[in-house]
Design a protein around this nucleic acid. Sequence first.
DNA 1: AGCAACTCATTTTTT
DNA 2: ATGAGTTGCT
Length: 719
Amino acid sequence: MNPLDDLNPHQKNAVEYSQGAQLIFAGAGSGKTKVLTHKIAYLIDTGAVRPENILAVTFTNKAAQELRSRVEEFVGRNAKYVHIGTFHSICARMLRREIEHLGYTKQFTIYDADDQNRLLKKIIDDTNIDIGGHKPKNILSRISYLKSWMTSPEEFKPRQGYRLEQLVKELYPLYQNALKRSNAVDFDDLLLLPLELFKQAPEILEKYRFIYQYILVDEYQDTNKPQFHIIDLLAKKHRNLCVVGDDDQSIYSWRGANIENILNFSDNYPECKVFKLEQNYRSTNNILKAASKVVANNINRTPKELWSRKSDGDLIVKIEADSDYDEAARIAAYIQREIITNKRKFKDFAILYRTNAQTRILEEILRRNNIPYTIIGGVKFYERKEIKDILAYFNVLSNSKDDINLKRIINFPPRGIGKQTLGIVEQFAFEKRISILEALNHIDALELSRRSEKSLQSFSSIIKRAADMRESIAFEEWTRVMIDEIGVRTYFKELGGEESIQRLANIDELLNDISEFCHTEDNATLESYLEKVSLSTSIDTWEDEKNTVSLMTLHSAKGLEFPVVFICGLNQGLFPLDRDNSEKVVEEERRLFYVGLTRAMEKVFLSSAQMRNRAGEMQYLPDSIFLNEIPSELMEINPVKEGVISCRCRKPQKSSGKVSFQTSDLKDKIVRPGSIVSHKIFGPGKVLDITGVGQNAKLRIHFRTCGTKTIVAKFVEVK
DNA sequence: AGCAACTCATTTTTT
DNA sequence: ATGAGTTGCT
């Protein structure tokens, strides 16, 4: 197929224009990915640019994969040479090659939120700084925000009387130093260090300018300051820069995304040509009208008019529920109704919400109704404890300075290295200015009991053996041997119980993942695998062909489309979420709502619940102001009456099979006096009486092994 | 050193 | 309603 075929005139103009800077305002569903795909193919096809000289930056790895496979349809194997990836993955790859200029080694570790948290906590412990009630996580998010605006520790001016800001001022430089000492970078560093590199070594900038002669950036409205500078520096010479975005879909200002980047693009590239794509191919007209009306309430935007040739379609359905449970039940009922009356499949539905905390109830109700679902987001696979522990071994093997990961595993599985022993080693390492792993080479110099010394020796030799093995066997095989060496499997097998079985299954899943990686990646190494792991998100691993309902936050839904979309929790305080009610914040929430509405192809359901359980207490919340912004003639309220919706009364049933490893088991324990239960330590026993209800009820249990004890319900298994 | 159970605070969104 | 951090027992 020709890259200029199958395009509307506006799309065609945008594809054809390939001389210099270009700004494409692409409304929701206007064929943005299509234009990017065709444009890359066009550049290659016409011989204007060689595939290896094209850089395309997308928002998620999934989008990158999709773009690559669509380009492949045009240009075949040439697609392989196009540089396509997210800002973070492209920067990580660049740093892997060049970071030594900045005093790190190529084996640097990418720290995730949990690693960052451990690192900051260690600093707080070591320095005895009193953080008086403030949480390390909050301090970190402030630091991250400063970094996303490129404010250095020295430049940051805390306001008088703001304790949190004083703490940030104190801890930010220490945190930064600690990262470097650990040969580690955080997500913000991935964007900042390339800029540092370009400044310190202009020849490297030249090199990449030479490689990336034509640059395309997707979702440009959500780029932040460092991202802007990276692109700007790279593009400055050839000035072949095509940015695509939609200011109405800018939803990441809280992490430093700067909408001005797109609104003021022509200030930096005065020669740029502006294109607008306003024909929507995704949604029915009613959906589009509603979305346009909503977003028109925002002041800070470029005016635009989305239109569609599609029919009006169904009205938007407003679901008015009594409670959050009722809301979930009604959603479940509408899904079943749509499946029966309109022959839809489970995978046609997405349920979108503002906060991850809303998943729990939805999950429970869907499960009770035998509706298969996949949760995108929440606890990610690679963040599970047992997985992170194994990955910590891998990280330590790659980067010997990584004390944070080393501390995770020095006593996992338990080998008798406690606080005391670790403290001695840490102190020694601190004094000698070496890493903990290096300190283990001098065990004899430490004053330790025979026992502790032996434990440390055994840990140290596991690491040494593993390091030696890396030389001689391939990565995939090495991981398998490693997992045996570590003894995690044996540990969980001996520990027993339901939870251990799940953990063992997850470890197998990890091995499968590694093996798949090794068979798809050209040169799979420990480092390249770790990089993939640290940069992958739950959206990236989402299998869209699986026939399940998708549950995710509105943020995660960006860039996706579904025939039927539910947006739930449309209550004032929850969506828009209240933290401070400045107009700027409401505008971003409104854009988020706009993003949600425009995900839908055929049908939208909007739900609110009068009463919701928030942080353990019931709250009455009025309807979201956003609901009033949709013209009433486009909406029908509770079209199906109460009697029809009865599924919430249904009895809990076992799930219809494996839904996903992210789905946790519903605990339907019914305990009464006389029930036989089993305790992990004390074994089987008979319940004598019960005080309280639910998971925290206290049970008096007579155990065969050790007589009568009082145990909290959640610690026993019902027979 | 290790685990069971308590207390207390906690709900934004994520690369 | 849950989880993290911590205590207190073995």
